[in-house]
Nucleic acid binder design. Structure first.
Lengths: 206, 206
DNA sequence: TTTTATTGATTGAACGTTCAATAAAAAAAT
DNA sequence: ATTTTTTTATTGAACGTTCAATCAATAAAA
């Protein structure tokens, strides 16, 4: 059934199929055949659209990174002229967005973390993403405190976010988003104590 | 050169070789041949001593978990009748022990985290370890605060430790142990603020 | 001489990639 | 409108490679 303009459709299909396969059996057993079956297409099509399996995996990681970026950006765009605390809270919540907590996304994240230690292509993507989270946090803390204090606050909050996400993902019960957000926001309150005036506002933005 | 009693020697050799191979090329490319060459033995010996590659990988994960447990236990054993803050600090420092930060150990940890999502054998080991860290922390916090507060404090500190470790490991500059410990101890101070009397003691136990 | 430890060639299975063949749609021609 | 031609999309069998596991052969120690 070849209509024209299938490329973006197939690319999207195959990327989703890759995440589904990783969710099912892990990256090690996510063969091109299995991925192709998930997308309902032939195995050969992967080389056609992505040049090979490696290209598909890189494209998949780009997608996951992009999803995270958008989840954060969507929340922050609602905060024109918001306080630093508002922006930091939005960054926290964005990192615990549905799209990042689901099985396929979570297991894909883990697999790519491990792979990025040995594949320079993935490593660069990984570093850009880590740096982005850190910079965003640091930038907001800088509005309230001196440089060195802001840096350590950003490092601490970044670690807290990733750590809560990691332990929740590895846990058999899965990530308790509510609780993770509560702990992260609590830590944020402590970091900001003495620096801003607003009383944490204890909001319920999900 | 077959002497008797080679088993424990070979097992230890092969486990170290496995971590070295994972450090070099990642779990995906850590073939039995490469591991065996690292240990200076034949590939067949792996099946002989571990029943197969899976057995070797499981034994390797057990070793890494055991090393972490001992790094923590060693620090805590010097604190007979120590304060909760002392014990919590020792747990933090133990998690940033040399043995856990080195390239082979770090990359092995990451690889096993990803694998544990799909291999029930590794998953159980993983959960026992996570639970151990949480329980140890919770137990100490309970000496100073109510149950629910202790639980959240333990969850937060566990996430902070793992998050600092993770981001440091993924970072191109590697983990800055000093800085990580400083941030984690700072968070601990905030968690304990108002609960204990001792003034953080700003110690230099490495 | 018997036991223990080790080797390494062999085997069979599984993988990613390739490419000639195919078929549907779109475009062009009638 | 209908037929023909061209383009685009897709297939899946075949190929070469790589891997883990096996096991008969071997050699040192007991």
């Amino acid at each position: 059934m070849p209509k024209t303009g299938m490329e973006p459709i197939r690319r999207s299909q195959l990327i989703k199929a890759t995440m589904a396969a990783i969710d099912e059996v892990g990256l090690a057993d996510a063969t091109v055949l299995r991925i192709a079956r998930h997308a309902g297409v032939s195995a050969g099509i992967i080389s056609h659209y992505f040049g090979g399996k490696d290209g598909l995996l890189e494209a998949t990681m780009r997608q996951v990174l992009s999803d995270l970026g958008q989840a954060v950006a969507a929340r922050r765009s609602k905060l024109a002229n918001g306080s630093p605390r508002d922006h930091l809270g939005a960054i926290i919540d964005g990192n615990f967005d549905r799209s990042q907590v689901s099985g396929p996304a979570a297991k894909t994240w883990l697999a790519f973390w491990a792979s990025s230690m040995h594949r320079t292509q993935l490593q660069r993507l990984q570093q850009v993403n880590d740096q982005r989270l850190y910079s965003n946090l640091c930038c907001q803390f800088r509005r309230l405190m001196p440089r060195d204090a802001a840096r350590d606050a950003a490092r601490g909050l970044a670690a807290m976010i990733d750590g809560l996400w990691l332990r929740g993902t590895l846990s058999p019960e899965g990530l308790d988003t509510e609780r993770a957000r509560r702990i992260a926001h609590g830590y944020l309150d402590q970091l900001l104590a003495g620096y801003d005036t607003s009383p944490a506002s204890s909001k319920e933005t999900a």
